[in-house]
């Protein structure tokens, strides 16, 4: 059995250290070692996006990254975006526009949408659909997810303009 690795990561701004076999998938390290159960295991085959987190500024399916690979990385999960007392704009708009039903895909959706809006603060509907193509939803039919993301973009841009 290969040795365990000393893993150091920064997750949602907090330094974390633990020992793990390098083959452990990042999603399990997050969920089972760090108790960050926001990112979900949907397909476990790199298709559904429910496990999406941000690793060093990239949207990543954490079921398709070894924890060894993530060693040294800066990671953001849905828990790092908002909290029940201080919802992220995307969490607000998903609630407002019924961007979720069962909610299983939602952490991955919002984490991905957050990165998408960072890269493209003012996307068209088509750009939202293309940029969210790595996230599957079994419930909503996507319409309200797209609406929620567009609403968040409008709100964030409005806040920006007001600040200027």
């Amino acid at each position: 059995m290969p040795d365990k690795m000393h893993i150091k990561v920064t997750v949602n701004g907090q330094d974390e250290e633990f020992l793990a076999e390098p083959r452990e998938l990042l999603i399990y390290a997050l969920r089972e070692r760090l108790n960050l159960t926001g990112p979900h295991v949907g397909c476990e085959t790199s298709h559904c996006g429910a496990c999406t987190v941000i690793v060093n500024g990239k949207s990543v399916k954490s079921c398709t990254m070894f924890v060894g690979q993530a060693n040294g990385a800066e990671i953001t999960t849905i828990e790092g975006l908002g909290s029940p007392d201080a919802l992220h704009v995307l969490q607000e708009t998903f609630r407002e526009h019924h961007g979720l039903q069962c909610g299983f895909c939602t952490p991955g959706m919002i984490t991905r949408a957050h990165k998408l809006l960072e890269e493209n603060p003012n996307p068209t509907e088509e750009e939202v659909r293309f940029g969210m193509a790595g996230n599957l939803c079994r419930c909503t039919g996507y319409q309200n997810i797209v609406k929620s993301i567009l609403a968040a973009a409008a709100q964030m841009n409005g806040a920006q303009e007001a600040a200027e």
Partner: peptide
């Protein structure tokens, strides 16, 4: 090719 998440990696 693939989807946004895959294309980052």
């Amino acid at each position: 090719i693939a989807d946004p998440q895959v294309r980052y990696m």
